[in-house]
């Protein structure tokens, strides 16, 4: 099974790259496997992953560990389960600092208090000695963010950081992440299923389908002129607060399971615009704004206009 297949991606310094896709699209798996977070014995990753010019795929676990947590911080989807329930939050932050830096317990704790303050937790001196269950969901996510930032990472990987949160809390967390990105000069890889979140945060977008990149481009370009029919569907299917449409554009069928990705274009079975050529696997093409679809640019403009009409018609 190919959970991720042929993903090439580069993240520049201070850049925010969004990876968007539905469940099973391989968006999380790709990041986890690169960082050696997948412990299953039958997972294999091939290809090349370079971090600051250095090949990190196939690094020994010991060397990888130094990278994880120090140079690369991670934020996860569910803050309710991301922290070890039996330790105080300050202890957990200090644990990471002490794993990477030669500091005393007291120094690490002091840094934990500062970090909690920085991520907007009121009364950090008191909260540092509380357990995860004494924090609300949004506050826990702040703790996770504080932990991810504790060693000033150069890259932050955020896997659905706001999906489990309420709208107002999501806004708080997104605002915080934006602010911290400026302060810490880190690059961010933002994994999400929500085009809205991408639109708020990302500079560049990778749309994934069935473990393969379907479209890569500048955030605004992808939202304004999406090239891949899957992206059209993804954008059209989301009900928006600003406009009311009587019917949502839908993508027929369900997301394909990575267990049986069709030969040829993975999206073809659900694509209303498929033609003979789609039996062959498309390659990512384009100049800056890449997509993996056999349709010509003229066809795309024409067909997309058609979808929009259906979507917005009575």
């Amino acid at each position: 099974m190919h959970a991720v297949d042929g993903l090439s991606l580069s993240v520049g310094r201070k850049e925010v790259v969004g990876i968007v896709g539905e469940s099973g699209s391989g968006k999380s798996v790709s990041m986890y496997s690169m960082l050696g977070l997948l412990r299953e014995p039958n997972v294999s990753v091939t290809g090349s992953v370079r971090f600051e010019g250095r090949e990190i795929l196939g690094l020994a676990d010991r060397e990888m560990r130094v990278l994880r947590g120090r140079d690369i911080g991670m934020i996860f989807q569910d803050p309710m389960t991301a922290l070890t329930p039996v330790y105080k939050v300050g202890w957990q932050i200090a644990e990471q600092i002490r794993a990477h830096q030669d500091v005393t317990k007291a120094q690490a704790r002091q840094r934990a208090v500062e970090l909690l303050g920085e991520v907007g937790i009121p009364e950090p001196h008191r909260r540092v000695d509380q357990f995860p269950h004494e924090f609300s969901g949004g506050m826990r996510q702040r703790v996770v963010i504080a932990m991810a930032l504790s060693c000033n990472p150069k890259l932050l990987i955020a896997d659905e950081p706001t999906t489990a949160l309420d709208v107002t809390t999501q806004a708080q967390i997104l605002e915080l992440m934006g602010k911290l990105q400026d302060a810490y000069d880190s690059s961010i890889v933002l994994i999400t299923h929500d085009m809205g979140v991408i639109s708020e945060m990302a500079d560049r977008v990778v749309v994934m389908y069935a473990g393969r990149p379907a479209e890569i481009g500048d955030r605004r370009a992808v939202i304004r002129t999406p090239q891949h029919p899957y992206t059209w569907g993804l954008l059209g299917a989301v009900p928006r607060v600003e406009t009311k449409r009587s019917r949502l554009a839908t993508i027929p069928g369900t997301p394909v399971s990575p267990l049986n990705v069709p030969t040829g274009c993975a999206f073809a079975p659900r694509c209303v615009h498929r033609f003979e050529k789609c039996d062959e696997r498309p390659v990512l093409r384009g100049d800056g704004h890449l997509d993996a679809c056999w349709l010509s640019s003229e066809q795309k403009v024409h067909l997309r206009a058609g979808t929009l009409e259906i979507g917005e018609g009575a």
């Binding site: 609300s136 949004g138 506050m139 309420d166 709208v167 107002t168 809390t169 999501q170 806004a171 708080q172 997104l174 605002e175 929500d194 085009m195 809205g196 979140v197 639109s199 708020e200 605004r220 939202i223 304004r224 954008l235 989301v238 928006r240 607060v241 600003e242």
Partner: peptide, 27 residues
């Protein structure tokens, strides 16, 4: 008003930027 202002929307660069009201604290 705050809920609506922070609901993520698709920004393709053509709309006027919204004023976001991020309310603080928890319920």
């Amino acid at each position: 008003e705050a809920l609506l202002s922070v609901a993520p929307e698709l920004d393709d660069g053509t709309q006027a930027p919204r004023e976001r009201i991020v309310i603080s604290g928890d319920v």
